[in-house]
Design a protein around this nucleic acid. Structure first.
Lengths: 180, 180
DNA sequence: CTTCGATGTATCGAGCCGATATACTCGGTC
DNA sequence: GACCGAGTATATCGGCTCGATACATCGAAG
């Protein structure tokens, strides 16, 4: 997840970890936030894997022990990002994963976009059915608060399914447009 | 989170880890699920802390190395649960935490309920404003898909704020009813 | 009589978080 | 010219959680 996001953002330009985190926050902040406690370890993992390199490390001035590093995408990194873009696995169907992947949707191949949207729809439909079942099953027994929350969740699921249907229809129309 | 949920469920009856996980899933499944990979380590932590005890460990039959354990709440465990119930910190405002806490709302003191609902409202309002700002800021620049998702999220936030307002009003009415 | 699904306990590696520590730089202010 | 707060920047630590995996029993269906 974080690896995918880092690789995606670094396509813009090489940057400091700090700036990267800010861009991450600006771009994905509404779906997901990442802390430094995961960012820096992940950057080192990507370095080891050769997906990014350190460029223009500022010399250590005085007795400052921490050099300022600029991270830059490598060819392997771009390749890896393309692979991740083409992946429509289950991690792209949950709330956060879907949000993050959707952020890079304009760079995602049309067929993968479709598989992600359909996977997400299946996921949300399952949740919707689960909530319907829970509401039908209980009626009397369960807590008033829980029932209210289930009701709210059910409406949200129904709306999202409608939203997804529209998006999917739109994608299909676009596909047909290109074919002719 | 898991500690809170375990303690809450174990109020029903002592049970096996396996059964506990099932009850957890039935009760909270719509907001949050927990894997065995977190359940068993957490149970051992609670054992060490004296919040639960092993009761009626089935004898190891044959060359079965794994005994069946029944976990039971202790007085300290009940106390701890009461403490957690009375906590209205930020972890009760996010999606999952709110869902879990709401599950035990009928056992939560009225003033704590109110603080949780208000905290949650503040949280959702912040998200709503963030989404509004994002939609206003961009309009042209940002990705079509992101904009659509922001729009969906904005509507969901608005609905949830309304939902919370109704719940809060209801709680207040109930309070006034009891006072007189 | 075997296989399959449910019951049941458990570990491992890895990702991620929140809190915390450490420094430098630049603008303003007293 | 000393001081301070906010922003820039890197980094670690302990702890929680997940998904995958492994092991083992038991009843029922075939």
């Amino acid at each position: 997840m974080l690896e995918f996001a880092i690789l995606g953002i670094l396509h813009e330009a090489p940057m400091h970890g700090y700036v990267l985190r800010k861009r991450l926050h600006e771009t994905l902040g509404m779906f997901r936030t990442f802390s430094y406690g995961s960012l820096y370890p992940t950057l080192r993992r990507l370095l080891r894997a050769g997906l990014i390199v350190e460029e223009a490390v500022d010399p250590v001035t005085g007795w400052n022990r921490r050099a300022k590093r600029v991270y830059k995408l490598t060819a392997e990194g771009k390749e890896r990002f393309a692979e991740l873009l083409a992946d429509a696995g289950p991690q792209t169907w949950d709330d956060e994963g879907f949000g993050v992947h959707l952020t890079f949707f304009s760079r995602t191949p049309a067929d993968v976009r479709m598989r992600i949207l359909e996977g997400r729809r299946r996921r949300v439909e399952e949740r919707r059915e689960g909530l319907r079942a829970a509401l039908a099953r209980a009626e009397e027994k369960i807590d008033r608060y829980t029932r209210e929350l289930h009701q709210l969740g059910l409406e949200a699921s129904e709306r999202e399914v409608r939203w997804l249907n529209e998006l999917i229809a739109h994608e299909q129309a676009e596909q047909r447009g290109k074919e002719t």
